[in-house]
């Protein structure tokens, strides 16, 4: 019993730690989450957590087994059928922003147990694979700028807006 209580407390602390801005949806679940992992190129996303909860009801669709929701993926269920709510439920609590640094690669390789969670996407991909995958299925918005407007840095790298190519390239050989 004590153990369960402790786990719950840990769980709530985890959720609290995840808060970026919040008007509470029950026990510390944020209504809005600001996602700014690619602010070099895009404006932050103010993610309407509350609306998604209302629509989907099932926390496990995004949070896997971590909120204690029943997992349906048979690969996950092998271990997490009854593993209960976890201390960490936020995306960035498990999905690292820099998945391919030498340290991250080593950690991924050496982790225990050595079989599972090896193929865990980085934070940016965790968002996109989860959000876009679902939006495609549920006919939600799927364009890059439907969720995050590109900023100046983004226009610069995409050669768009004021950085758009001036004229169609002429073969330079003509100068010779």
């Amino acid at each position: 019993m004590h153990a369960v209580k402790r786990q719950m407390i840990l769980g709530v602390t985890g959720i609290l730690m995840m808060l970026v801005s919040s008007v509470c949806f029950g026990a510390g679940i944020p209504d809005k989450v600001t996602i700014n992992s690619i602010q070099k190129y895009y404006a932050p996303v103010s993610f309407n957590h509350a609306a998604h909860i209302n629509k989907l009801k099932d926390c496990g669709l995004c949070h896997h087994h971590t909120t204690g929701a029943q997992v349906t993926d048979p690969n996950c269920a092998r271990c997490h059928k009854n593993s209960g709510a976890q201390a960490v439920v936020s995306c960035k609590g498990c999905h690292t922003a820099e998945p391919f640094t030498p340290e991250a690669l080593k950690q991924q390789r050496d982790q225990q147990p050595p079989i599972y969670h090896r193929d865990k996407p980085g934070l940016k991909a965790a968002y996109h694979i989860s959000c876009l995958g679902c939006h495609e299925k549920m006919h939600g918005p799927t364009g890059c700028q439907d969720c995050h407007k590109r900023n100046d840095g983004g226009d610069a790298i995409f050669k768009s807006g004021k950085y758009a190519p001036k004229a169609p390239a002429k073969p330079k050989a003509a100068h010779h």
């Binding site: 890059c144 790298i157 050669k159 758009a164 390239a169």
Partner: peptide, 22 residues
Amino acid sequence: CRSCEAACNAEQKLPEPDLAFD
């Protein structure tokens, strides 16, 4: 999304593309 093409162009300092990467 062609982000990879855009990133390669910047990283390798390649010439301006004929069309924007979006």
